[in-house]
Structures are given as C-alpha cells and as structure tokens.
Amino acid sequence: MTSSADSPASAAPALLADFLAFTLAGERPARADARGECANGVRYAWLDEGLLELTPAVRSLRSVLVSAGVHGDETAPIELLSRMVADIACGNVRLACRVGIVLGNVAAMRAGCRYVDDDLNRLFCGRYAQLPHSREAPRARALEAAAANFFAGAVDDEDAHARWHLDLHTAIRASVFERFALLPHTGAPLSRAMFEWLADARIEAVLLHTAKGNTYTHFTAETFCATACTLELGKVRPFGENDLARFSGADEAVRALVSGGSPSAGRPMPRVFTVIGQITKRSDAFELYMADDVANFTPFEKGAVLARDGDYRYVVTHDEERIVFPNRTVKPGLRAGLTVVDTTADTLAALAT
C-alpha cells in the first residue's frame, strides 16, 4: 500500500495509523500489507508483534531504536510512540533516519500489569536463559534479536553517533526530579551529544550506572555501541488516562532526533548523580526504613540506616546520599534500591564530544 506525501492520514495502513491498537488486538498484517511505502517515500516493515521498522527515502547515517512498554503498565510513552508512527505514516513528521519501533512487553500491556512472571528489563544480556520457564524469557530473546537485526543495518560510524537507543518508561513512584534518565555503564566516555539531547528533552537529572546491568539499554550500549539511555518521564497510569502534554518535552525531542534536527541551544544541562551503592533484599526478613511512597532522589544524611536484613545493614556513608527505585516488595536476591551522590560538575566538565 502506498500514499503520496500529501495523502490524508486515513490513507496510512491500519498498522501504522494506530500501531498500539493494532498490537493490543493481536492482529497480524496480511503478507502483502506487512511491508510497503507511506508518506514521503518512507518504507515500513512489520517485523513481528510490536516490532516495526521505518526507513526514509534518502539514505541516512543515523539509526534510532525507540522502545516503550518494556514494563507493560507504563503507558504514556507507548501512546506517544504510537502517535509518532502515525504522524510519520501520514507525513506530519518527516523521517530523516532509520527508526526501529519496539513495544516491549505486549502480554503485560494487554493485562495492564508491569510484567507477567519476571521484570523484562532485568532479563537482557542473555539473563533470560537463567529463567527458561518465565513467560518474559522468550520476549527478552526476541527483543535482543530485533535490536541485533536493526543495528546490523546501521552505518558503521561510531563518531557520528550513528546508533541510538531511547527506552521510554514512567516511574512507579513520585520523584524529586519528575523527568530523569539512566545511562548504562560500558566504560566508554560519556557522550556530549546525549547530554545535549537530554537537555532538549527537558530531562532534569541523569543517573550514571557504575556497573553492568541487564536492562535493554545496557544490552544495546554494550553490544552495538549505541548511544543509549533509559528515560523515566512521569508516573504510571492506565491507557487513556495520561496527560500527554506533560510529556511534550521528551516527545518533541524524540521527533526532532528522528527528523534530523539539532537540539535547541541554551537549555540547561541536567543535574548528574552517580550510583555509589545498592540495597539488596536478601530474605523475607528484609526491612526498608522509609515510607512506601518516598520519592525517588529523596536525600538522606550521613549515618542514616536505610535498610536491614539479618546481619546486613545499609548505612549512609557520604554527607548526603539519595535513594532511587526503593521497593521493599521485590523478590529476595533482587535490588531494593539504589543510592546516588551528586557528581554534576565533574561529569559535565569531562563530557566527550
């Protein structure tokens, strides 16, 4: 199916006109409709459930993977991503690079829950192999393969930031900084281009990991040298109950990136926090000494005891540490919180070009 650049939105294929509804309904396009061309000569390819690739008419040096719904109840970014696909399909957004669209945990999206058996965003980098009976394991394997196939078609030009991965989330709890980003740890220098893009997206804070993880962005950054980040953009809400205007900064920045635009000048850089500790739940005797609704990035002073589990205690050792992702209900053996310290000045001064 094809359409010209000035065709109306209704001419877009159904899977592009509302990719979210198409995916939630469990529909699969007919063979003839799985690939085609839409406005501005953009070629589309439906790859599998929740997986789509869009290619501009003109060869591009940049490939951008954009994922949402890795946690099925984090709905606002999923809705934004589906709207962007529709706008590309009808010509309202001019595509200037290859774009991979990933709706992550489709089964959890349909059920309105975070995950079915296990947190999908802890199963990448091959960790799914340790949980062969988890219903999330096959999806983690499929999403790794989708990223590998997508980046196999990218231009081999790391200096030009040819490979990007933006993984869009919303947080379970409130945050001192409503919009923040997490950057995976690979040992490579931090990218000024990424920080400038985060500023353009109105991101208020950046969390720097200091150890390898098993998230989707850790996988793409480490395996494909992607300029990758996880974005936390607000609070979890059911489908249809999001005020998408609150996400306009990130939405506009994603659209600008895929349209070949440059970040707006003069926006303030986000504050930067570096992980210095992890609180681990070792048993069901675990106690977390803070309110269940404590906000992300809440500060604690030196000497404060944040958690206890038998002989294990987590005590604040810096003048100030902030808590991120506290969760007393995780399974034993999993992370129940991260502690971070402010490293803004040193980090921004050391950014690579």
Rank of each mutant, 00 (worst) to 15 (best):
L120H: 10
D73R: 08
E321H: 03
M290T: 11
F180L: 02
L20P: 01
A152E: 14
R62G: 05
V66R: 02
P268D: 02
G72F: 03
F22V: 03
T344N: 06
T220N: 10
P13F: 09
A352P: 03
L348G: 15
L338G: 02
R335F: 02
A193L: 04
D87F: 00
L338T: 04
R335H: 12
A250H: 01
K302C: 15
A291G: 09
F195Y: 13
E320S: 11
E74L: 06
L168V: 07
G36N: 06
P8R: 05
Y115V: 07
M269H: 13
R135Y: 03
D73L: 08
A265W: 01
A12T: 00
A253F: 05
G277H: 08
A11F: 04
R313K: 14
H133E: 14
R255S: 04
L166F: 14
H165D: 06
A228Q: 08
L306Q: 06
V275Y: 00
F22L: 08
R246E: 15
L233V: 03
H209A: 14
A11I: 00
V305C: 14
A129K: 13
R328A: 15
F239D: 04
R246V: 00
L52G: 06
T347C: 13
G72Q: 10
S10A: 10
W197L: 15
H318L: 01
E79W: 07
A256M: 12
R328T: 00
T210C: 04
P13G: 02
F195E: 09
T317E: 12
A352N: 12
G91Y: 09
I276H: 12
A9R: 11
E204P: 07
G104I: 13
A174Q: 13
A256K: 15
R31K: 12
L198I: 09
D342C: 09
D167R: 08
R335L: 08
L131R: 15
Y314F: 14
A17T: 01
D243N: 14
L80M: 14
N242H: 02
D73M: 07
T75E: 06
G104C: 08
E287F: 00
V102W: 01
G213K: 05
R255E: 10
L103D: 10
A205G: 07
R139P: 01
R83N: 06
E158F: 13
W46E: 07
D6L: 09
F224H: 14
C97T: 11
Y115K: 10
A140F: 11
E222G: 14
L233E: 14
V85K: 02
S262E: 13
C97M: 04
V116Q: 10
V340F: 10
A174D: 14
F286Y: 06
D48S: 11
E320V: 13
F151H: 07
D156T: 05
L123N: 03
T317V: 10
Y44A: 05
F150V: 06
G126P: 05
L65N: 03
M109L: 11
G277I: 09
I276V: 15
K302P: 00
A349L: 08
Y216V: 03
D284R: 13
Y216G: 01
T280I: 12
T227M: 09
